[in-house]
Design a protein around this nucleic acid. Structure first.
Lengths: 107, 107
DNA sequence: ACTATGTTTCTATATTTATGGAAATATAGT
DNA sequence: ACTATATTTCCATAAATATAGAAACATAGT
């Protein structure tokens, strides 16, 4: 993980509408949800939603697949975990009290 | 954790200089580093650094304490862990395969 | 071919954010 | 009080981002 990618990914969820979308997809699981479903659930106009979905896709935190007329978006769990790991990397200079990386506690 | 706070925290690290500062402090541990030390390490002009430190403090991801003329900044590990937990909350609708929250894996 | 539905692109506008020099403020040593 | 060092605030400018209507494009059913 390089810093530019991390900033891109963080930027993609550092916005209320997009964070809602992302969390919705994280909770939705592997299959994801269609764009229309997301828009209806979160009450976001189609063009605005499309803009945000593109931002999230571009950062790599979600991906999409087409199923006939619908486009399903789903969380990229691997990318998400990679980002979280990057944030906590070498926490407290690698002191054992800080491990595991998932829950970084100071000495 | 409410979504506004999460967006504020994510925004505060969704910027290259600030993400560098934050990771430096996460790695520095509990004691933290002085503003001058951070600026010198990362080669950031004082006024720019001050602006970024304020953003990070305001979001709650770092805190500061004054030691004579120096101001020491340090990571707020509790806030960081809270943010990470928020992102992975109820991952995959709480399916057991997704646990632990720190490493969210789809079914 | 036509129509309905789902999604994206185009466009303009409004808003927010980043940068760094200069000046101001704070603390400590002499 | 004076000086040096540390940090922040003020300010102007530049750049990036969010919004949503209208139009365009894509897919599938009739």
């Amino acid at each position: 993980m390089d810093i530019k990618s991390a900033v891109l990914q963080l930027s993609s969820i550092a916005q209320e509408a997009r964070l809602e979308i992302f969390r919705l997809l994280v909770q939705a699981g592997q299959d994801g949800l269609s764009a229309g479903n997301i828009g209806e659930t979160l009450q976001i106009p189609a063009s605005t939603l499309s803009f945000h979905l593109k931002e999230l896709s571009h950062s790599g935190l979600i991906h999409s697949r087409q199923v006939s007329r619908y486009i399903y978006y789903s969380a990229n769990y691997e990318a998400m975990n990679g980002l979280l790991a990057y944030l906590t990397e070498n926490c407290c200079a690698g002191t054992k009290d800080c491990a595991p990386s998932s829950s970084c506690k100071p000495n």
